[in-house]
């Protein structure tokens, strides 16, 4: 392989690495919102799911660019094998290996999602849990091997990403909707057929589930009885 190097390749590798971390963060936060059934009023739940899928595709493109540029840049001796096999890089063996592990985990999550209809749902779900691990290894990889990792702005970005994902973990665990509590309100996209008046009271949390349940029962009664005051007035 000819020695191909240019400062721009190295700049691209650094920039796409940082952007990839931000995109992975956004993907994980959106996935958490889907799993905890956020949405239904202002934004549809299916829309959050679609944005989650789309941004994950964009982050895959950025990560692919990051990896390809790093390999073809001969400024650092990272071979093609190091893309998928950890601990084969002569340059910064451990940090690059952690990045390789992150890429492998992300490939597993991606491929299992592409073949989601062909595999068991529980298998897909198990593999999808690995995306948390993928983010952790990507963040550690960026912190250990990033050229800009110890600059102020880069540390702020990394800490922001880690904070967001940690908040997602807490949200995912604490706000996990109990079964049958995840009712959706009407999306503004669903044309008003059989619209329910209590749409605004729908929430994700478990605390209000009883209140929601009783209020959502109301529209099932065909016609609300007129208030008593009105009945009294009619009497002679």
């Amino acid at each position: 392989m000819t020695a191909l190097t240019s400062p721009y390749l190295w700049y691209s590798a650094r920039a796409t690495g940082i952007v990839s971390l931000v995109l992975l963060t956004v993907t994980i936060v959106l996935g958490t919102l889907v799993a905890t059934r956020v949405g239904g009023n202002a934004v549809g739940r299916f829309e959050l799911n679609e944005v989650h899928r789309s941004i994950s595709m964009i982050s895959i493109a950025f990560i692919a660019f990051h990896v390809v540029v790093t390999v073809i840049d001969s400024f650092v001796p990272i071979g093609v094998l190091s893309v998928v096999v950890p601990f084969t890089s002569r340059y910064q063996r451990l940090p690059v290996a952690i990045g390789t592990i992150a890429l492998d985990l992300m490939l597993a999550v991606w491929i299992s999602s592409v073949f989601k209809e062909r595999i068991k749902h529980s298998s897909w779900r198990f593999i999808h849990w690995l995306s948390w691990l993928c983010f952790v290894s990507a963040a550690v990889h960026g912190f250990l091997s990033g050229t800009d990792a110890h600059r102020m702005w880069s540390e702020l970005v990394t800490v922001g990403c880690i904070t967001l994902v940690a908040a997602s973990v807490v949200w995912r665990i604490s706000m996990r909707p109990e079964r049958a509590a995840g009712r959706t309100a009407h999306s503004p996209l669903s044309s008003g057929r059989a619209s329910r008046p209590d749409a605004a009271s729908s929430r994700v949390g478990t605390k209000d589930s009883n209140a929601n349940r009783s209020s959502s029962r109301r529209p099932l009664t065909p016609e609300p009885a007129p208030p008593r005051a009105a009945q009294r007035e009619r009497r002679p």
Binding site: V34, R37, G40, G44, R45, F46, N49, H121, R179, A180, A181, G182, R183, T184, H186, S187, L189, S190, S191, R193, A194, R213, S216, R217, L220
Partner: peptide
């Protein structure tokens, strides 16, 4: 058995799907 009441189908196919009071 698989359904967990996410409610995406109601938003995507409102002319075919309505939800019961628990979101299924």
């Amino acid at each position: 058995i698989m359904c967990d009441g996410y409610g995406h189908c109601r938003e995507l196919a409102p002319e075919l799907v309505t939800l019961d009071e628990w979101g299924y």
